[in-house]
Write a protein that binds this DNA or RNA. Structure first.
Length: 501
RNA sequence: GCCCCCAUCGUCUAGAGGCCUAGGACGCCACCCUUUCAAGGUGGAGAUCAGGGGUUCGAAUCCCCUUGGGGGUACCA
């Protein structure tokens, strides 16, 4: 067989969805593994719901994930690239019209003048009679006179495909042989709306045929629709591509992943600080495995291993906890400069949201990388981790300042002693972690305190939180002046609560 | 309702008749490391392979049934 051609065909009716991204990824990986061509086509025939904003979101986030396509539009409203242009269905309308005309001429398709009300009544009647819903065929055998009468009556016909009575059999690359009786697909289905715009099942086949797709790799939700597509391929006189239906990505309750129950927009994951490397790695392993025990894999490594044989048949629950773990793995692999660069937008967002008062420079950030890199589950958690460094002041209440095993009086005494020690024994110039720690340990020992308790009191006083990166590194990052200021403020807070108590 | 698909630890999965008294990873628990939090290390609990019948010397792996779950059933995609 010739070079494989595969595609992703998103509808710009919503932001890039986890499921779409996963399907795009599998197609991309398949193309790269086989030396094939990966095409992106925009299915924008649902004019009422399609927007350029969604188109922009989809294209941009696929780029962000590193999923590159060989043919199709590169950007929203941008020009198409590739020999089968255009790749937006609304710009391919004549082609569908030509195909429809051809089918009409062969009587493979016929005009249907049924009104929505009639159709609705049919459906209700069938439901009441416990019959499966299907088009009753009212317009299937209209005479030319009857048609003319309908038209004269002002009715605009939709085009319906004549579904032949047969069993459609096909081989699915992941599921094996599938057989569906056309008696069960709902009767003659509409292919072109009354207003002349084509419908999904029609456009997808016309385009897949014209664009010479060799493999249709898509979600399992299309498995039941495949007979319609096969019938259409035959009607159009085109050879069948191979089909591969991927297992669905599921909500925790095992229903098809949805916006209602899960976070489905890729943009939201990016905004929270998930790395594209982690998203891709995670998505690839939802419904596919290498067959080995490898699991931390880059896009290139995935492309070198991907195959349809190891695609799972059953649906896969989207486990966000596992994603977070993988994200941590990828964050730890980043170079210092790379991490700093990727953190920047998140720090700016923290500043814009008022969570920090100013954004550190790359040089301020650099010495912190060793102590934060292994503590970041996501890039977005940086503010939560070390935001106290760029807040003008931290607020702590007296209760929080007192370590578990201590009382307020001890804490006050300890903070005063620590403050004095830092003020007296360390200079601004040599304010280093190595120099800060010994006097504090000595202090704890001389008073019979556990070093950990002393450290905790200082930690809370200076950062406003009980969980932070190592204390002395935090003090160094804060600088002598601010450490003393914050210790003073904490001491004052404690003194006041002593008085009122 | 009807049609189709699916079914291994809570989750993602390895497994294509004997290598499985079912392996790995996430999560969980314990311990180690340790100033907190992480990260890391070690160990542990966790699946009678949905259930029942076959086939076979032998089945998680093949067949059938049952049950459960999911998807599809639009002039949406």
């Amino acid at each position: 067989m010739s070079v494989p051609r595969v595609r992703i065909a998103p509808s710009p009716t919503g932001p890039l969805h986890i499921g779409t991204a996963r399907t795009a990824l599998f197609n991309y990986l398949y193309a790269r593994r086989t030396g094939g061509t990966f095409v992106l086509r925009l299915e924008d025939t649902d004019v009422a719901r399609s927007t350029v904003g969604f188109e922009a979101d989809i294209l941009e986030l696929l780029h962000w994930l590193g999923i590159a396509w060989d043919e199709g539009p590169d950007s929203a409203g941008g020009e198409d690239r590739g020999p089968y242009a255009p790749y937006r269905q609304m710009q391919r309308l004549e082609r569908y019209a030509v195909a429809a005309k051809e089918l009409l001429a062969k009587d493979l398709v016929y005009p249907c003048y049924c009104t929505p009300e009639e159709l609705d009544a049919d459906r209700k009647a069938q439901e009441a009679a416990h019959l499966p819903p299907r088009y009753v065929g009212r317009c299937a055998n209209l005479t030319p006179e009857e048609r003319a009468a309908k038209v004269a009556d002002g009715r605009r016909g939709a085009l319906r495909f004549r579904v032949p009575a047969e069993k459609v059999r096909f081989h699915d690359e992941v599921r094996g042989d599938v057989e569906i009786d056309t008696a069960n697909i709902g009767g003659d289905f509409v292919v072109v709306r009354g207003d002349g715009t084509p419908l999904y099942h029609f456009t997808v086949v016309v385009d897949d045929a014209e664009m010479a797709m060799t493999h249709i790799i898509r979600g399992e939700d299309h498995l039941s629709n495949t007979p319609k597509h096969i019938l259409l391929f035959h009607a159009l006189g085109h050879a069948l591509p191979k089909f591969a239906h991927l297992p669905l990505i599921l909500n925790p309750d095992r229903t098809k992943m949805s916006k209602r129950k899960s976070q489905t927009a890729i943009a939201d994951y990016r905004a929270q600080g998930y790395l594209p490397e982690a998203m891709v790695n995670f998505l690839a392993l939802l419904g596919w495995s290498t067959g080995t025990e490898e699991e931390i894999l880059s896009l290139d490594e995935l492309a070198g291993r991907f195959d349809l044989e190891h695609v799972q048949k059953g649906g896969a629950v989207f486990d966000k906890v596992r994603l977070e773990w993988l994200n941590g793995q990828w964050i730890r692999k980043l170079s210092t400069d790379d991490l700093i660069a990727r953190l920047q937008p998140f720090l700016e967002a923290d500043r814009d949201a008022g969570r920090i008062d100013h954004v550190p420079t790359a040089e301020e950030l650099r010495p912190l990388v060793p102590i934060i890199q292994e503590r970041l589950p996501t890039l977005g958690s940086v503010g939560e981790l070390i935001g106290f460094l760029w807040q003008d002041r931290v607020t702590v209440d007296a209760a929080m300042l007192v370590p578990k095993r201590w009382d307020a009086a001890t804490t006050l005494e300890a903070l005063r002693a620590a403050r004095d020690s830092i003020a007296e024994t360390t200079g601004a110039v040599t304010f280093e972690a190595d120099e800060l720690e010994p006097p504090m340990r000595a202090l704890a020992e001389s008073r019979g305190w556990k070093a950990g308790d002393l450290f905790m009191a200082i930690r809370v006083a200076v950062t406003g939180r009980t969980a932070t990166p190592p204390l002395f590194d935090s003090l160094v990052a804060l600088g002598r002046e601010r450490v003393l200021e914050r210790l003073d403020a904490a001491i004052t807070t404690l003194e006041r609560s002593e008085v009122s108590a």
